[in-house]
Amino acid sequence: MDKLKAAVVIPTFNKKERLLLTLESFRYQTVSPDTFEVLLVDDGSADGTREMLQEWEGEFSLRYIEQNNKGRSAARNRGVEEARAELIIFCDDDMIAAPTFVEAHIAAHQERPCAAHGMIYNLPFLKFFKNPSTGEAYEELDGESLVLIRRYCIRKEEIKDISYIKSLSKKTLIEKNIASIFKNNLAQYQWLSFTGANSSCEKELLERAGMFDEGFGKAWGAEDFELGYRLYLQHTPFVYLEEGYNFHMMHARMDFQDALRKSNDKFYRMHPDKKIYFLPKLLSGEIKSIEEYKDYVNSHTINEYEGD
């Protein structure tokens, strides 16, 4: 217990095929296995996640916590509450962690408490597949057109070779913008880096900010940005990590635009800030760069936008 430095909190819901690869990636961390624990909070999965984990074995400490389906905010909060380490690292159940993932997050907090964001790469071809290892496709997406891209599937045995996985990945527009925010020291936008897929923060800071707002419920949305915004309001330093990177095993999301709008509406009602109100324009790619977005926010009023 004396060596335990970080707790990796992973909420999961009905993604056992991707989760298996996520857990596999924590076998190959550059820090000792007794340096961190993984808290897997199962938010009411009904796809055999529990049974899959009964057969899974790893060298690091994995604690499995079950709860009724309440949403990602509640699952992450449960993980923070149960964690035995002061440093909390957030990761999602569809991410492959680079070997330096845990080490980089721990190092970021050595000088002072902060909120740190690790670079996220996307694995775009995996979005067609229910099982990213076997190439089993989502029923609504299956077809002959997927035959050629099945070669980009990632088997468990390939997790160790991060260079191969990196060769299949690309940076998303939002990740490029997050990097630009830090490069240009746009402190008023650094809260956009607080994403549940790859962030870390001291438990004390999270508790002082009020933890994740469980009012976002089960819907996908802006609950991580919203907590990041509250951390920003309490003057938390933000840090960007290039070595604390991981890879998003993309998956089908048919309701992206609608879910984004609804969750951002709630976010704005909680914090009536123009930077939040116009945020869907940046996240959807309608506005491409953070510099262009900053200019847009400064030059438009909410009433003007609503009248378009």
Rank of each mutant, 00 (worst) to 15 (best):
S299G: 08
A108D: 02
H251D: 07
S45M: 11
E292L: 14
D295F: 08
T22F: 15
I159W: 00
H235L: 13
L192Q: 07
A108V: 03
S45W: 13
K16R: 12
D92P: 06
R208K: 15
L282F: 15
I165R: 07
V31K: 04
G58N: 06
F212P: 03
T100H: 04
E144N: 07
Y296D: 08
G71L: 04
I174G: 01
Y164G: 02
I174A: 01
T22E: 09
S32M: 08
P280S: 00
G58L: 11
I96C: 07
K203I: 04
I89Q: 02
L148Y: 04
Y189N: 05
E86N: 14
K281R: 15
E144P: 06
D94W: 14
P11V: 05
Y229A: 02
P237A: 00
T12P: 00
L192Y: 12
G307N: 13
F36Q: 06
E140T: 10
M52S: 08
F247A: 02
A219H: 15
S289Q: 10
V8K: 04
E55K: 13
Y121W: 14
K288V: 13
G285M: 13
K203N: 03
E37D: 02
I165N: 10
L206V: 10
D295C: 08
A6G: 12
D34F: 08
N264A: 09
L21D: 04
R208W: 11
Q67H: 14
E59Q: 13
N264Q: 11
E304C: 11
P113S: 15
F225E: 00
K127Y: 11
P11Y: 12
E291F: 13
E223H: 03
E51N: 08
A85S: 15
I10A: 04
S73K: 02
A179N: 03
A219K: 14
R112C: 07
Y189L: 02
L206M: 14
F125V: 05
Q190Y: 06
R63A: 09
A209Y: 09
E82C: 10
L233A: 06
G135F: 15
A6F: 08
I181T: 10
S200H: 03
N298Y: 10
L231D: 03
H271W: 04
H105P: 01
S200N: 06
W220T: 05
N246V: 00
V147D: 09
L279W: 12
A252V: 08
K166E: 13
I165A: 11
K294F: 14
F182T: 07
V9D: 03
H248V: 04
N303A: 08
S163G: 02
I302N: 12
R151N: 09
G221A: 07
K16F: 10
S45V: 10
S61C: 14
D295H: 12
Y189V: 00
E55S: 12
M119H: 01
F129M: 01
R50Q: 09
I96F: 05
F247H: 01
E59Y: 13
A219F: 15
F212K: 00
G135Y: 15
E304P: 03
M1E: 13
I120E: 07
Y232D: 05
